[in-house]
Nucleic acid binder design. Structure first.
Length: 480
RNA sequence: GGCGACGUAGCCAAGUGGCAAGGCAGAGGUCUGCAAAACCUUCACCAUCGGUUCGAAUCCGAUCGUCGCCUCCA
């Protein structure tokens, strides 16, 4: 069984074979840190986190680079997003970058998204970008006008191979105001002259200015990963023009291919519409993570396929919450039984069932990272494990350990939706002791058939977010 | 206008030629002192119309609808 991934460049699923055996080099376009991350960022970076995690599960040594854009990403108005954000908050642009970079990682940490191996900042790579632009000028793929440098799209015949777009089409009816100084409307900026009020500026051979948006990814990806490198990921909305431009700059300058596999993930929708500030359906990740258990949001994202758009509704999140709870409950119960379970070997039936689940999980993941199918395999397993846990013959300690280990590996390490410790284990200390005391008291009351008092304790704890579940081997509880 | 994606149960969502995964909700049942949880059973004319094929949700064409991109986007 081998990993197949859909390559946007070939528009087909391909068997994934890294350039160097055992090693994978991967780049994903990171955020522009001028504002809080929103739910859409959550989907994108969870989607690519899964790619990294699964590659590591398969045994690859993954070098994962994700940039931080802190310069050169312009608004419609031509204003730099960073400068606009800095004005809004009355801070220096680099202060803004620092603050939102911090918040970005804070939110991603909560979503259990693994940190990239390297998080290079655009503003820290200006000399490399200038060198790259010089190389493009020297090879005739770029031209300078009034202190700005543009990429000559007509000089690179491969332009459009990723997005399937020709340069001479669709120029009417767009929002572009064509700059007079460009030779062709499709040409894009590599370096821009800074107006006097533009405070993010660096000296260059063409005067003071700042880099174009696309150049940073080309430069930083190749600097840390080489050229070509294995995987380039990003949101579908960046396929054109951003990724198309990255390819043009990279391949025109060096003559080598840029990225070998291009992965694009589908956009997050809110009740049927793409999230936009202007649409009034903008939800920051921090808000969502306060309202919902972060791993529930993650589970919701993983119940769809990364390449498809995903429609977020309150109902859908509730469904994910219930489903996630089921998965966590079975692990909780397994761990609860563990200390008192009889010794013994793993039963062959159980071993076979666990192996079947692992195979089904891998088969789905191997098929273009189908996390929804992988989750389905775990739900199927969960039903059977619950049946075994309900059966009169108790599972042995080794049985329970084997189950726990598989969930930890697949739901914990690969999908990242299981915390290392579940609530019951996490709440050691006074509150845990108090709950235990109440539960024990209630057990005594139940033995004395004092139902009303026993139910009062159960209802009272329920109101505090502690749910009791009576089972044949005692009472377990979960904390909301 | 150009390019592209999608339309699967009440909701979310896999599945891209061989009897339609999974989660949630609903109905009935088992278990329980009562619950909860769990388990069992049940719940789909795959947008429409044509075509190709022994066989189509899946391939082709048309229609309707939704959405995205077209130099701001994760």
């Amino acid at each position: 069984m081998t990993l197949q991934i859909y390559n946007s460049l070939s528009r087909a699923k391909e068997t994934f074979v890294p350039l160097h055996p055992g090693r994978v080099t991967m780049y994903v376009c990171g955020p522009t840190v001028y504002d809080d991350a929103h739910l859409g960022h959550g989907k994108t970076y969870v989607n690519f986190d899964i790619v990294v995690r699964y590659l590591r599960y398969l045994g690859y040594d993954v070098l994962y680079v994700q940039n931080i854009t802190d310069v050169g990403h312009l608004l419609d108005s031509g204003q730099d997003r960073m400068l606009k954000g800095a004005q809004r908050e009355h801070v220096h642009p680099m202060q803004l970058a620092e603050e939102y970079t911090y918040r970005y990682f804070r939110d991603m940490d909560r979503l259990n998204v693994g940190r990239p191996s390297i998080s290079p900042r655009a503003s820290g790579h200006i000399p490399e970008m200038i060198a790259w632009v010089q190389q493009l000028l020297a090879s005739g793929h770029a031209y300078e006008v009034n202190g700005s440098v543009y990429f000559d799209v007509r000089s690179f015949e491969g332009y459009g191979k990723l997005s399937g777009r020709r340069t001479d089409e669709a120029m009417s009816g767009t929002r572009v105001q064509v700059l007079d100084e460009k030779r062709d409307a499709a040409d894009f900026a590599l370096w821009k002259r800074a107006d006097p009020e533009h405070i993010m500026r660096w000296p260059s051979p063409w005067g003071e200015g700042f880099p174009g948006w696309h150049i940073e990814c080309t430069v930083m990806a190749t600097k840390y990963l080489g050229q070509p490198f294995d995987i380039h990921g990003g949101g579908l909305d960046n396929k054109f023009p951003h990724h198309e431009c990255e390819i043009a700059q990279a391949e025109a300058a060096t003559g080598h291919p840029f990225a070998r596999y291009w992965l694009h993930n589908g956009m997050l929708m809110i009740s049927g519409e793409e999230m936009h500030k202007s649409a009034g359906n903008f939800v920051t990740l921090a808000q969502a993570l306060d309202e919902w258990e972060p791993l529930v949001i993650r589970t919701f994202i993983l119940q769809g396929h990364y390449r498809n758009p995903l429609d977020l509704t309150h109902e859908a999140l509730l469904a994910a919450q219930k489903g996630w709870g089921r998965l966590m409950d079975v692990v909780r119960l397994v761990r609860h039984r563990l200390p008192t379970a009889p010794a013994g070997d793993v039963s062959s039936d159980l071993a076979a069932r666990l192996e079947e689940a692992r195979r089904a999980f891998e088969a789905s993941m191997d098929d273009d990272l189908n996390s929804a199918g992988a989750l389905a395999a775990m739900f199927d397993l969960t039903r059977d494990v619950n049946t075994l846990l309900n059966a009169s013959a108790p599972l042995s300690q080794t049985d329970l350990q084997a189950i726990d280990a598989l969930y930890g590996r697949l739901l914990g390490d690969v999908l990242g939706i299981m915390p290392a410790t579940l609530e019951v284990e996490a709440h050691v200390g006074l509150s845990d002791g108090l709950i235990r005391l109440l539960v024990d008291t209630r057990s005594s009351l139940r033995q004395a058939r004092q139902w009303a008092a026993a139910d009062a304790i159960r209802d009272g704890l329920q109101a505090l977010g502690v749910q009791l579940k009576d089972g044949p081997d005692g009472t377990t509880w979960t904390v909301q």
